[in-house]
């Protein structure tokens, strides 16, 4: 088990390194930060100074190695845009993002899980069909479209809520609801199929045959077993708490990490982009790992299987 987890962590770190490297190369090759940040009209001396200052005059592989050397010493670089530590720039945005993603996650689970379970329990009934219709709509409509529609209705027509910004809690409502609805659709669908799979298992029939009432069969035999595969998707959602809001933040001009990322990419503000990617990578990996450990704890079959697969 320990062996297996170490392997998993190692692989995840390799993945994060690859992402960061790829971003480095793409951003460096796709535009000169000096021009973008100083503007094309700046005097040539300013360019030169800027480049020397940020080490941009060195060959790209030297920059790359230097960057990694620095990262391993805990130095994540400085934002080219406002000269502050990139970590600081990113950190101050995290609470803002969490302010909408955490409630959204709550919403996703509170709507998605019961909806999926209900649909499965009343399979093929009108309830099931309604839930599935909404769910399909929920994840075929892109979140920016849903966001715009919600903004249209509640901000422009009804005027109940602001359409953009972050001044009051009211500003957080629309982005949260947008994300929550889309995520709930995904969870509902996933939960339904996990639940149907479990309900079709012979041990469910055994549970009924031994005299449990249907609601107890569902409570003690179906729900816990269906929760196991659902963990994966919940893990994924937790992993995307930081990064999952790029689109919605842009639509509602919410100044979170997502919007920072968009701006940093546009400005070729490399250090900031890298910090965000690292952060995203690490939360994903962390969530994944947590799911794995949980899996092992709740599913006795896996403890054995893992051991075999771990070799």
């Amino acid at each position: 088990m320990v062996e297996y987890l170490l392997m998993k962590i190692f692989r995840a770190l390799v993945t994060v390194t690859l992402i960061v490297s790829a971003a480095f190369v793409v951003l460096r090759l796709s535009g000169d930060p000096a021009i973008i940040i100083l503007g094309p009209e700046a005097p040539p001396e300013a360019f030169e100074a800027f480049r020397r200052n940020w080490g941009l005059d060195q060959p790209i592989w030297v920059q790359y190695l230097k960057y990694f050397a620095a990262v391993f010493q805990g130095d994540l670089g400085v934002s080219m845009r406002d000269g502050r530590s990139a970590l600081e720039v990113v950190s101050e945005r995290i609470p803002l993002t969490l302010a909408i993603t955490l409630p959204a996650l709550f919403l996703k689970l509170c709507i998605g899980l019961p909806a999926g379970v209900t649909a499965a329990l009343y399979r093929n009934s009108w309830v099931d069909r309604l839930i599935m219709m909404l769910s399909v709509a929920g994840f075929t409509v892109p979140s920016f479209v849903l966001g715009l529609v919600l903004a249209m209705v509640f901000a422009v027509w009804l005027g109940w809520l602001p359409s953009g910004g972050s001044d009051t809690w009211a500003h957080a409502v629309l982005p949260t609801v947008t994300m929550g609805l889309v995520g709930a659709a995904v969870i509902a669908r996933f939960t339904r199929s996990a639940m149907l799979e479990v309900l079709g298992q012979p041990y469910i029939r055994t549970a009924s045959a031994k005299g449990l009432l249907w609601r107890d069969v569902v409570r003690t035999h179906a729900l816990p077993n269906a929760a196991i595969p659902t963990l994966t998707i919940i893990g994924f959602l937790v992993g995307s708490l930081v990064a999952g809001a790029v689109v919605v933040e842009s639509v509602f001009s919410w100044p979170g990490v997502g919007r920072l990322l968009v701006n940093a990419v546009a400005n070729r503000d490399l250090a900031v982009v890298q910090v965000i990617l690292l952060l995203v990578g690490l939360t994903m990996v962390g969530a994944n790992l947590a799911v794995d450990i949980l899996y092992g704890m709740v599913d006795p079959r896996l403890r054995i299987k893992r051991l075999k697969a771990g070799s």
Partner: peptide, 26 residues
């Protein structure tokens, strides 16, 4: 259902073909 469930596994019990998947794995 309440009365029937008292009979199931009580006065009338049932066992099935595939014993390993007829028991809850968790």
């Amino acid at each position: 259902e309440t009365d029937l469930s008292r009979l199931r596994g009580g006065r009338i019990a049932m066992i099935f073909q595939d014993p390993s998947s007829s028991l809850n794995p968790v």
